[in-house]
């Protein structure tokens, strides 16, 4: 199933009559980032996500989640990483790989942390906002780094 060409890519469900926006099925973003790129990266992500079929609150969920993954890589894993955004079936997926020390999915708390807790909030929020969150080891030389992928379903 390719990206939807029906409905409004950025607004509500009713799109005013007019020429259809032809969405390329192969819109795919792959980009390096550092802390200096974070605001521009969100602009680019937002446009790609919309053209891959996400609208409204689902697009916002992906943007907020992608920001947390990139923010984590910047603060805990060497100041940056590689971000990919692509369509996988009915899902829009954001994958961030870094070259930090790596971590296991077990560090993500099951229950909401205390407000005073300084850690755990970012990935806990990503898990609540998305339709899937996977954490795996990177494939680079030591340290291996982490590959974190979150996906949001296109409705």
């Amino acid at each position: 199933m390719g990206p939807t060409t029906q409905g409004s890519p950025a607004g509500g469900p009713q799109r005013p009559p007019g020429p259809r926006v032809h969405l390329a099925a192969d819109h795919r973003l792959e980009t390096d980032f550092t802390s200096a790129d974070l605001p521009r990266l969100r602009v680019v992500l937002g446009e790609y996500a919309a053209r891959l079929g996400l609208a409204g609150s689902r697009r916002n969920a992906l943007l907020l989640s992608a920001n947390e993954l990139a923010d984590n890589a910047i603060r805990h894993a060497g100041g940056g990483g590689l971000l990919k955004l692509y369509r996988r079936g009915a899902l829009v997926c954001c994958c961030v790989s870094d070259s930090g020390p790596g971590f296991d999915v077990s560090v993500i708390p099951e229950r909401p942390p205390q407000l005073s807790s300084p850690t755990g909030w970012g990935l806990w929020t990503v898990r609540q906002l998305t339709d899937g969150l996977e954490v795996g080891p990177g494939s680079g030389p030591r340290p291996l780094g982490a590959v974190v992928t979150c996906c949001v379903r296109v409705v």
Binding site: S8, P9, A10, G11, R15, G18, P19, R20, V21, V43, E47, A50, R51
Partner: peptide, 12 residues
């Protein structure tokens, strides 16, 4: 300019 133009394209 870039952000304004890209948003317009996205919105049709």
């Amino acid at each position: 300019i870039g952000s304004f133009a890209q948003t317009g394209i996205t919105r049709g």
